[in-house]
Amino acid sequence: MSGSDTIDNPERRNFLGKITTVAGVTGAAAACWPFVNSMNPSSDVLAKATTEVDLSNIPPGGEHSVAWQGKPVFVVHRTPEQIKNAESSNGSIDPEADSKRVLKPEWLVVVGICTHLGCVPNRDPEGGWLCPCHGSMYDASGRVIRGPAPKNLEVPTYSFVSDNKILIGKA
């Protein structure tokens, strides 16, 4: 290095300039992460991740909605007739066997949010659901039988903690 204005190793200077730019951009991008991540669900929201439901008060044919993670979950005590209907087909738009969607055939647990754009479907006396927003229909297993919804009602992870108590949100 001397005091003159000429650069004795321009490639070296070029390389250092590029490395500095890369490091600077990477650092700036990394610094964005805390801001982006702060918008994800906070710990207290995550803490409400499970909901316990007492099944003993739900009569056969009855439906009970509970809030799980701020979303409605339909817990349905299905009658033998509804079980037979549900098991007789696999649905048409998003085929799935009824046995894959329940732990015990008499209890159906589904997230009550239409898979189209997130409205809450209304209970249909036949045993299924009808979405008021865009007319999607679901059968007694929560499977979509008329669009525009693309998928069946989601089955949350849940487990039986006793014969008539389930814990939604934990397998």
Binding site: V36, M39, N40, P41, S42, V45, Q69, G70, K71, I113, L117, G118, C119, C133
Partner: peptide, 25 residues
């Protein structure tokens, strides 16, 4: 309904919706 539209984001649609809302709903 409108935040749900972001489910159409490829691959990470569900996460994007939760991120936008900061909650599951």
């Amino acid at each position: 309904v409108i935040t749900n539209l972001f489910r159409a984001t490829p691959f990470i649609g569900d996460q994007v919706v939760i991120w936008l809302r900061g909650d599951y709903g």
